[in-house]
């Protein structure tokens, strides 16, 4: 087990190095000029700025410095907010994105299991039809349309009741989290509902459920221990990729709901060609995802010894 863990971690470190290098190379082949500002600067000022960001050195040297700083956990100073460290930006904004992501995954997982089970129980009856219609909507409507419509609906609800039931946008309190997390988790929830439904249906028809019924086990026990529990397994296995998709797919929701997450920051940085922030955020997200995947794998290995052998 230790050897396996060590091996996976080593692989992770190499992968992160690869991501860092790829990001570095990508950013340094971008046509354009991160120093250019609205008011044109003299050569002297440009040279000062270039020196400040180490852009005056040869590429190889810049790379060595970059990797060195990265090992120290230092991503440098932002180009647009020249008095802010990229580290500060990540530290302040990542928890927001993570909060949103965790909630969205929770919504998606719990909702998916609930609706999936319900549709399987009521298959081909009205609740099934209604939920599956919503699922189809959830799968086929782009998230930015959902976000915009969700917000519009909130305004109208608030105006209708004359009080603010849920905030329209912003961040800071628990009530601010609900709608954005729901919107963010919507697509995944729809996907998981479908998965759960077919997995449930397979189990409902399985021999051991029939046996359990024949044996006269109480209905609660059959449903909970035999059906639900086994049907959830395939849902659990796709949660890993779902987490990754939700964490980086949060941009849209963060943009529409004015949430100060790292995703929105990344998009802004791209639009302002803020080299250091783009590199820092990409490498940070990349590393985060790599180690999340390793963690999930290790957990599986812990639960299921067969994985380790492979």
């Amino acid at each position: 087990m230790w050897q396996y863990t060590l091996k996976r971690l080593l692989q992770g470190v190499i992968t992160v190095w690869f991501i860092a290098t790829a990001t570095f190379l990508a950013m340094h082949s971008v046509p354009g000029d991160p120093i250019s500002g609205e008011r044109a600067a003299t050569e002297a000022i440009r040279a000062n700025l270039a020196a400040r960001y180490g852009l005056d050195k040869p590429l190889g040297e810049q790379y060595v410095i970059y990797i060195g700083n990265f090992l120290k956990g230092d991503f440098g100073i932002s180009f647009t907010q020249q008095n802010r460290q990229v580290n500060d930006i990540i530290r302040e904004h990542f928890p927001v994105s993570a909060t949103l992501g965790i909630l969205a995954v929770l919504f998606a997982a719990l909702g998916g299991v609930l609706w999936g089970a319900l549709t399987a129980i009521y298959r081909n009856r009205l609740p099934d039809t209604i939920i599956m219609f919503l699922v189809i909507l959830g799968i086929s409507v782009p998230s930015f349309v959902f976000a915009a419509l969700g917000q519009l609906a909130l305004v109208n609800i608030n105006n209708f009741f004359g009080v603010s039931i849920l905030p329209v946008a912003g961040w800071g309190t628990v009530s601010h989290m609900i709608v954005p997390a729901l919107v963010l988790g919507m697509g995944t929830m729809a996907y998981l509902t479908r998965l759960m439904r077919s997995s449930m249906l397979e189990i409902i028809h399985s021999d051991y459920v029939r046996t359990a019924k024949a044996k006269g086990l109480p209905a609660e026990r059959i449903f909970l221990k035999h059906q639900l529990r086994n049907a959830i397994l395939p849902v659990v296995t796709v949660l890993g990729p779902a987490i990754a998709a939700i964490t980086t797919g949060g941009f849209v929701v963060e943009l529409v709901f004015a949430i100060p997450g790292l995703g929105r920051y990344f998009v802004q940085a791209v639009q302002q060609l803020d080299y250091t922030v783009i590199m820092g955020t990409t490498v940070f997200y990349g590393s985060f995802l790599v180690f999340m995947v390793i963690l999930v794998d290790l957990l599986y290995g812990w639960i299921d010894p067969r994985v380790r052998v492979q």
């Binding site: 917000q151 519009l152 305004v155 105006n159 603010s164 329209v168 946008a169 912003g170 709901f257 004015a258």
Partner: peptide
């Protein structure tokens, strides 16, 4: 701009 409009409508 749509978000801001919604916030104004909501008296925020």
């Amino acid at each position: 701009t749509n978000t801001l409009l919604n916030l104004y409508k909501d008296s925020r």
